[in-house]
Design a protein around this nucleic acid. Structure first.
Lengths: 258, 258
DNA sequence: ATAATACTTATCGTAATGCGATAACTTATC
DNA sequence: GATAAGTTATCGCATTACGATAAGTATTAT
């Protein structure tokens, strides 16, 4: 275990600032000083200082009337910079855009972050199956198409470690969350070169995914295609979209460096 | 002028951390310690401490080989939280999505941030005019459709202040960047209820925009529709899309609180 | 209405935290 | 293979941020 304590290079003030920012979500878009203090686990004085600082920096705004703080659009900056500086995102863009237009289905680019996948880009279907996944969304790796595609490229031991840390649970009646079930799917990906999941998290959603590899064989990211169960049978989807998906990820594996 | 100095509530460490993060862009996706120190205007020791801290927090990653730092996908978190907590973004979504599907043109939601507009959401055209505007992008208010729609709802004095602070310049041969030209367009928006610009920033782009108002008459955001000059004449575009655009922003003005 | 209460803003002396100079070490350059 | 440039580690000191408290303001109860 890494001890957060007594790390002389660690500037704790920064962590506290991010703790404040991290308390905002759909359920709590506007929060008052004490609410923030409670949720962030800081005392009043500290909360006072950090809300003040973040307000001065332009990331927080205080409603003079209600005294509640809310995030400002400036918080989009960081993500903008990431998107604009990430080689994967930039280089994958033309391929994904093309896939999206030819298939008319939702295309996503995801990476692994420990036990979760993070969505780096989304290209929505005009027919729209609007799950509320957006850029920055996180889903568990073990039951998402992208996650399985990414996991399957790791060493077995690493996968076990990830699963150990994962909170395996059922999101729908169909969710496969037992170890053996998950391993069966990982072996499937390794054998066939793509992952496929049906209604594992969102009812009605079927997704396929394939990994983008580095020259050294390591995974970089995964591309997934999601569609509605009501428009395609699973096997029809595989037939129809897997070749293009796999071809695209192959090309990307070639085209994207480091 | 507000003096950044001696503000006892200001935690400077936070500012420095953000200074480090802000140095990353398309031209500098990976930066080494000294590069960061130079660009952020911090000494080596400070840079050392903040890169360390940000790495521990998961926002930065160091390539062990090249010793270069880069942003991690975790930097998408903040924007995700903003998007998920912003009433404007959430409430506008169905309207914008609908506009996007019925018009098949690119639809954007923007807000004013001093002299610039910030893109809060984008709904791309299947026909794609891929300017490289994405969520989080900033454009000058005075020559963008959304910007003019937003500015026009402010008091004249406020507008002058914004223009004073703006760096008025030509992005294309067609850019209108003289005060009187800008005022003419602002009056146009006030009279007709929508803004319209042709190739002001990106060649080939024509955009129209209309403001979303609060109950008290203040502006909240603007919705813009962008298309290619090669597909529509300006007046054809107005005829074709303005009614739907204005109807949508009217509904949104009603539907979105605070 | 008025008191009581809870929360927000302002102030300040103190100590610990983060500062920045320097040293040890590592990688690139010639 | 020597020199320089850059990165990582260490440490004593002063300053910065801490956190307790007081003053001010809104909210609730009676």
């Amino acid at each position: 275990m890494s001890d957060e304590k007594d790390d002389p290079l660690m500037v704790r003030a920064v962590e506290k600032a991010f703790r404040i920012l991290a308390t905002f979500d759909a359920a709590n878009p506007r929060q008052t000083l004490t609410q923030l203090a409670d949720k962030a686990g800081l005392d009043r004085s500290a909360t006072q200082r950090f809300t003040h600082t973040l307000s001065r920096l332009g990331y927080l705004r205080k409603d003079g009337r209600t005294k509640a703080y809310e995030l400002t659009p400036k918080t989009l900056n960081l993500a903008y910079q990431y998107t604009r500086s990430s080689p994967v995102v930039l280089r994958a863009h033309p391929y994904l855009s093309h896939l999206n237009r030819t298939t008319e289905e939702t295309i996503s680019l995801t990476v692994l972050d420990d036990t979760e996948i993070i969505y780096l880009s989304r290209y929505l279907s005009p027919n729209v199956l609007d799950t509320d996944v957006i850029v920055g969304s996180r889903l568990p790796a073990y039951c998402s198409a992208g996650g399985l595609a990414l996991l399957s490229m790791l060493e077995d031991a690493k996968i076990e470690e990830v699963l150990d840390r994962s909170h395996l649970r059922a999101y729908t009646a169909k969710t496969i969350y037992d170890r053996e079930g998950i391993w069966t799917r990982i072996r499937f990906v390794r054998e066939h070169g793509f992952a496929m999941v049906e209604e594992q998290i969102y009812p009605g959603d079927i997704s396929i995914a394939a990994p983008i590899l580095l020259a050294d064989g390591n995974v970089m990211a995964a591309v997934s295609l999601g569609a509605s169960r009501f428009r395609y049978q699973a096997d029809a989807m595989v037939q129809r979209f897997v070749p293009a998906l796999v071809a695209a990820t192959r090309s990307m594996s070639q085209a994207i460096p480091t």
